[in-house]
């Protein structure tokens, strides 16, 4: 199903933010919408968006490729993006990331066996005073988790697992 069939109101609302002759501006919000489905932007979705905005698929793909929050490949249901940039690293982010990976038994960039979480190391997330921290990019958007410990993170993952199973 196309985006405008599935989310007619949302698509309309997003388009209404921009002057009609510049509807191309809506490409970024529409990509977020498309990404809700599979956790990444499928080729079909790119085609769909291209059609909606009267641009080419190549132009849409070019946007997906440029920005790091859009993905064109499947990963875990949640992407746990740990900030390991300079200010966070000065407050122990690198060690946090390392022990987290150790606990989960995967390396940065890998996904847990159950497909729930992919661990990524990312650049500054504007929460430098609350390191260690990460954001979870998942089906419902992006959520910040600040002043984290490995234990609390593992609890969070457990909870996500449970809520997934419950559904």
């Amino acid at each position: 199903m196309s985006l405008s069939e599935k989310y007619p109101k949302e698509v309309k609302r997003l388009l209404s933010k921009y002057p009609p002759e510049y509807k191309r501006s809506a490409v970024m919000p529409l990509l977020y919408l498309a990404q809700r489905e599979e956790g990444y932007v499928t080729k079909a979705a790119m085609k769909d968006i291209a059609g909606l905005l009267e641009i080419t698929e190549t132009e849409v793909a070019s946007i997906v490729g440029f920005y790091t929050l859009y993905h064109d490949e499947k990963a875990g249901k949640y992407r746990m993006q740990v900030c390991a940039d300079l200010p966070c690293a000065l407050r122990g982010a690198d060690q946090f990331l390392e022990s987290l990976c150790g606990n989960l038994g995967i390396k940065v960039g890998e996904t847990t066996a159950d497909g729930l979480v992919t661990i990524e190391s990312v650049m500054c997330l504007a929460a430098c005073d609350k390191a260690p921290m990460f954001q979870m990019q998942g089906p419902d958007g992006i959520e910040y988790h600040e002043n984290m410990t490995v234990d609390r993170t593992m609890e969070l993952i457990e909870a996500l697992k449970k809520s997934g199973e419950a559904k």
């Binding site: 510049y22 191309r24 501006s25 809506a26 490409v27 970024m28 990509l31 977020y32 905005l53 641009i55 946007i63 440029f66 920005y67 790091t68 929050l69 859009y70 990312v122 650049m123």
Partner: peptide, 19 residues
């Protein structure tokens, strides 16, 4: 935006806003 530091630069930001 969607993850690009350069979009803080004002003209890159405008390009980004233009899709």
């Amino acid at each position: 935006g969607a993850g690009a530091y350069i979009c803080g630069e004002e003209t890159a930001l405008l390009e980004s806003m233009e899709g």
